[in-house]
Structure formats: C-alpha cells, structure tokens
C-alpha cells in the first residue's frame, strides 16, 4: 500500500542512513508511515542493542503515539535513505479519513498488540515460576498455528528471552530449565528449546489458571 504522493509534500520527511528517527525514552508525538527505504527498530537491553524489527515501505511505526504522549519504548533508526510521512496526533482523524487503507492497517496492528499484551499478562499473573516458564513455551508454540502438538516442538528462544517474557531473573529461569531438562521434559540448546510434550505444559498451566480463579 502506498499513499498519495501529494501527502508527501505536506507530511514528508527524509532521513539518511544511521539517522535516528526517534529515540527510546523520548516523548512520542508522531507516528510514521514508510514511503521508501528500511527502518530498524532497536532497543537497548542489558547494554546491548537488540533489533526488534526491520520495517519497509508500507509499514507503520511509532503508532503508540496515537494513544497519548508516552516515552518511546524503542528507537527507530534509518538503515538507508528513507522517505517517511510523519503524522501528529492532532491530525490523525483527518489523515485516516483520507486514507482508509492506513486505518485498516492500524486496526490489524492494534489487534495483534492487544493479544500479545494480554497473553503476556496471563503469563505474568501465574503465581508459580515454573508454570510461568512453561507458559512462555506454550505461548511460543501458539504462535505457530501449523505446529503439530503431538510431536516434540522446537521453539527458537533463548533463556534471556524467556526471562523477559516471564518477568523473571535469568538465573531463576535457568534453574527451572535445567530441572525440566533433567527430567527429560525438554532438551536445551543455545538458541532453542525442544519440548517433548507441549500438551503436558498446556494442561498444567490451564488447570492452575482455573484453580486460581476458583
């Protein structure tokens, strides 16, 4: 989807390679639509820059600024020469009126965001650390709709990532994973975890969730 060229005269901005478009923790007022070029979304985690996503023409970013002025949760950096449309919160309605396609796109983005956030909240609300770790694996398995849960399931995830999802210390996650590994429930590699029987994990987490509410 490309937007009307005329919009570029009004809202267009350009960036050179390696320019920061916005920076993590900076208050956010604008959101962006990519006309051409690629943009990298990065976050500094434990003193390392981590790439969260790479976006290209037709993609939207910074859309959380539509809600309210909140600090940015990640930085956006131009990978190459980039042409963007920059929109302020104030002229959001007018913009979408003229560009229903963009409105639809945002609707899809928000739907996904809401689900991801809810799913994470479900993990965080579990009161047992081992179940949290298991539920992170359940969540990762859910993300692949074609996964055969009857078979051992391979999840591309690191201990650090599991710890982030579960809101736990990396050492605690490691202990739990070691333990599950010893019991033969999972097999651990540097960049992935193989779960022998993910339905076991799902069953445990679900029954705990039910009893939490009882």
């Amino acid at each position: 989807m490309l937007l009307d060229e005329k919009l570029f005269d009004k809202f267009g901005v350009e960036y050179e390679p390696n320019d920061i478009i916005f920076c993590e923790f900076e208050p956010g007022n604008d959101f962006y639509f990519i006309q051409s070029g690629r943009v990298e979304i990065v976050k500094i985690i434990n003193n390392r820059e981590k790439t969260l996503d790479i976006l290209g023409p037709g993609d939207v970013f910074g859309e959380m600024a539509i809600l309210e002025e909140e600090p940015r949760s990640a930085s956006a950096i131009a990978i190459e020469h980039v042409k963007l449309l920059r929109f302020r919160r104030e002229n959001f309605d007018a913009l979408l009126q003229g560009n229903p396609q963009l409105a639809y796109k945002l609707l899809v983005i928000f739907s996904k965001r809401i689900y991801d956030a809810k799913r994470r909240l479900m993990i965080l609300l579990l009161d047992d650390p081992q179940l949290k770790v298991m539920d992170v694996m359940n969540m990762l398995a859910e993300q692949d709709p074609h996964l055969d849960v009857q078979e051992p399931v391979t999840l591309r995830v690191t201990v650090q990532e599991i710890a982030n999802w579960a809101g736990m210390q990396i050492n605690d996650v490691q202990k739990i994973l070691t333990h599950l590994n010893k019991l033969g429930k999972i097999e651990l590699f540097n960049d992935r975890v193989v779960v022998r029987n993910i339905r076991d994990f799902q069953r445990l987490v679900n029954s705990r969730r039910k009893s939490m509410y009882a």
């Binding site: 979304i41 976050k43 985690i45 434990n46 790439t51 969260l52 996503d53 949760s73 990640a74 965001r113 991801d116 956030a117 994470r120 965080l124 009161d127 047992d128 650390p129 081992q130 179940l131 990762l140 993300q143 591309r156 995830v157 990532e161 710890a163 982030n164 999802w165 579960a166 809101g167 736990m168 210390q169 990396i170 605690d172 445990l204 029954s207 705990r208």
Partner: peptide, 26 residues
C-alpha cells in the same frame, strides 16, 4: 523473523522476585 517481532513489547525486566512455591500437581 516472526518471533523477533513478538518481542516488541518486552521490557528489560529483572525485578520480579521468583516465587519458590510448587503446587502439588507440579
């Protein structure tokens, strides 16, 4: 990759005290 995308919401958190309790069925 797709899974990278899903980490956009993650935060750098290490403030959660780990709860040691293990349920019976666990």
């Amino acid at each position: 990759t797709e899974e990278l995308k899903d980490f956009t919401l993650d935060e750098d958190i290490d403030s959660m005290p780990a709860n040691e309790s293990v349920v019976d069925e666990m």
